[in-house]
Amino acid sequence: MAGGGRSVKGLIETIAAFLIGDSQAERMVPPTGFTVRLTIVAAAAMAFLATFALAFSIATGTLADRWSTDLARTSTIRISAPETQMSAQVAAVLEVLRTTPGVQSSRLIELEEQQALLAPWFGDDLALDQLPLPQLIEVVETADGFDPQNLQLRLTAQAPGAAFDDHGRWQRPLVGAANRLRLVGWLAVGLIGVTLAVIVTLAAQSALAANHQVIQVMRLIGARDHYIAQAFVRRFTLRSILGALIGMGVGIVVLTLMPGAEDETGFLTGLRPTGNQWLMPLALPFLTGVIAFFATRRASRRALRELR
């Protein structure tokens, strides 16, 4: 318990010293070198990838939410009947819906609207009036909903050509897939974080080994290991944040060139964040800093222990 207390106290001291800053301590570490450049490049590359993974996760999440909420309370009734019976069956279905508890509203989907729905597949010049299309009725349910089986039975009795489609048949697997993709996106962000931690750890270990003489000199003149570690932690954390800012900046620029959710004709629609979603990538440099801080801190403490 006491050891844990000391550990927490040491951590708080380290973070406070880091935030307050000691440019003199940081100067102890030679300013140039392969490891410093490696850290910046790795952090930039990881932040760039993380920006995209994040955007991907946001986009799939938005898609899943939209499919879940927008379509969850709507359903469609399709009426296929001879032309002479169509009007009567439509009227019968509308009457059934009007008297069904849980139905908030229903409306007939007009020919023009059907044309607009089919246009992406068949083109704008399709003559729908020459095709034997079914008549569609959109049903919006209340928050409590209705009993679909009971509705189907009533529809069958009143309008034999009516078929009830609650969208769940195709909606549920799509929402499931979108949610799994969102999870994959977050998993990718996590793996990128782990990879960054590994790279920064290796770079810090390499720097500590290369600067063995610096450590010897600092110990000789009375520097505490905490002070020496802080010098390396500060150097690598700040370089990682710099790299992450660069990677995130480039990533955001590229994201602005991606198709947005409003571009409905695009295949990968909604990859470009909207509104407050743009703020999420801004967290990446901070997260990178946190990862680099703890990775370097752990690596430097271990290295200094081994150098005794």
Binding site: R219, L220, I221, G222, A223, R224, D225, H226, R308
Partner: peptide
Amino acid sequence: GRDEVSFLRR
């Protein structure tokens, strides 16, 4: 301890 050695060397 390690820190005490540092203070001694000062």
